[in-house]
Amino acid sequence: MTAARGRTGRPPLTEERKAAIRLEIARAAVDLFVAQGVAATTGEQIGQAVGVSARTVWRYFPSKESCVRPLFSTGIDTIATALRQWRPGRPLEEAFDHVWARDAALPGPDVGALLRLTRSEPGLRAVWLQTHDEAEPAFARALAERAGLPADDVRPAIRAAMLNAALRAAVEHHAYRTTEPGADPATARADLAATLRTALAVTAAGLT
Rank of each mutant, 00 (worst) to 15 (best):
M1L: 13
A3D: 13
R5K: 13
R5Y: 02
R7D: 06
T8L: 13
G9R: 14
R10E: 10
P11S: 14
P11Y: 08
P12W: 03
L13P: 02
T14S: 15
T14W: 10
E16S: 15
R17K: 12
A19T: 03
A20M: 11
I25C: 12
R27Q: 11
R27E: 11
A29W: 01
A29Y: 01
A29S: 15
V30D: 00
D31R: 15
D31N: 10
L32W: 02
F33A: 07
F33L: 10
F33D: 05
A35I: 06
A35C: 05
Q36T: 04
A39D: 15
A40K: 13
T41Y: 02
E44A: 15
I46T: 03
I46V: 14
A49P: 06
G51R: 01
V52Y: 02
V57P: 14
V57R: 13
R59V: 03
R59E: 05
Y60W: 12
P62W: 04
E65T: 12
S66K: 14
S66V: 06
S66I: 07
C67W: 01
V68P: 01
V68D: 00
S73L: 08
I76Y: 01
T81R: 14
L83Y: 01
R84Y: 08
R84K: 14
Q85E: 15
W86T: 08
R87P: 03
G89C: 13
G89L: 11
F96T: 11
D97L: 09
H98I: 06
H98V: 10
V99S: 04
V99P: 03
V99W: 00
W100G: 00
L106G: 04
P107L: 03
G108T: 08
V111Y: 02
V111F: 02
A113T: 07
L114A: 04
R119C: 05
G123V: 00
L124S: 02
W128L: 06
W128M: 10
L129V: 03
Q130M: 06
T131D: 09
D133V: 04
E134H: 11
A135E: 02
A135K: 07
A135Q: 04
P137V: 02
A138T: 03
A138F: 04
A140S: 11
A142H: 01
L143M: 05
A144Q: 04
E145A: 14
P150I: 09
A151D: 15
D152T: 13
D152Y: 10
V154P: 09
V154I: 10
V154A: 12
R155I: 14
A157V: 04
A157C: 03
A160F: 08
A165D: 09
A166C: 07
L167G: 01
A169K: 08
A170F: 00
V171D: 05
E172L: 09
E172V: 05
E172H: 01
H173Y: 12
R177M: 01
R177G: 02
T178A: 12
T179H: 06
T179N: 03
T179M: 09
E180D: 08
P181G: 12
P181A: 11
D184T: 06
T187G: 07
D191V: 05
L192Q: 07
L192N: 07
L192F: 05
A194H: 00
T195A: 06
L196Y: 01
R197E: 13
T198A: 14
T198E: 13
L200H: 06
V202M: 14
V202E: 15
V202L: 15
A204T: 10
A205L: 14
G206P: 09
L207A: 13
T208C: 12
